[in-house]
C-alpha cells in the first residue's frame, strides 16, 4: 500500500474518527464526504465524529492461512464489531486465544502495528480490539 494513501487515513485509523451527517445525524466509519442517504443535502454538513472505542463482537473468523506480514501472529481473529455508537467496524481481535473469542464479547479499541513496508519501510499503526477488561473493583480507602 502506498505511503500517501495510508497517511491520509491516519486520523480514522489512529483515533477511530468517523463522519456524522449534519442533516440526518447518521454516523459513518470510515468517514464519508457525502451522506449516501441525504446526498446533496449533506454537502458541507459532514463533520468529524470520534468513536469511544468500545463495542461488541457481532461475528468473527479465525485466520490460519495468513499473508506473510502476519505470519508471526497466526492464527489470528478478524471480527466485525458493533460499536456502542451503533455502527460496525472490522478489525483484528488481539491479546487473547482465538478460542476465547465469542459473539457478544465486549471489546475495546487499542492502537497496534498494522504492518510495515518491509524492514526499511514505513510502519503502519491503527486500531485493533482487545477484550474489555472489567473495571477494577474500587479499592478500600486506606
Amino acid at each position: 500500500m502506498a505511503v500517501a494513501r495510508f497517511w491520509r487515513e491516519n486520523e480514522p485509523r489512529y483515533n477511530l474518527t468517523g463522519a456524522k451527517c449534519g442533516n440526518c445525524g447518521r454516523l459513518y466509519f470510515p468517514p464519508r464526504t457525502v451522506c449516501p442517504v441525504c446526498h446533496r443535502k449533506s454537502i458541507g454538513k459532514m463533520g468529524p465524529f470520534k468513536l469511544q472505542g468500545t463495542g461488541e463482537v457481532i461475528t468473527f473468523s479465525v485466520v490460519h492461512d495468513a499473508p506473510s506480514q502476519f505470519e508471526l501472529q497466526k492464527p489470528y481473529v478478524i471480527a466485525i464489531i458493533q460499536m456502542d455508537e451503533g455502527i460496525r467496524v472490522t478489525g483484528q481481535v488481539i491479546d487473547c486465544d482465538p478460542a476465547e473469542v465469542n459473539i457478544g464479547m465486549k471489546v475495546q479499541a487499542v492502537i497496534r502495528r498494522l504492518g510495515e513496508e518491509g524492514a526499511s519501510g514505513i510502519i503502519y499503526y491503527g486500531y485493533k480490539f482487545m477484550p474489555l477488561t472489567p473495571p477494577a473493583a474500587p479499592r478500600p480507602p486506606e
Partner: peptide, 13 residues
C-alpha cells in the same frame, strides 16, 4: 510485547 507492539503503541496507550 506482542509482535504488533512497540514503543510507539506502548507510549500511545
Amino acid at each position: 510485547p506482542s509482535p504488533d507492539e512497540d514503543v510507539i503503541t506502548i507510549s500511545i496507550e
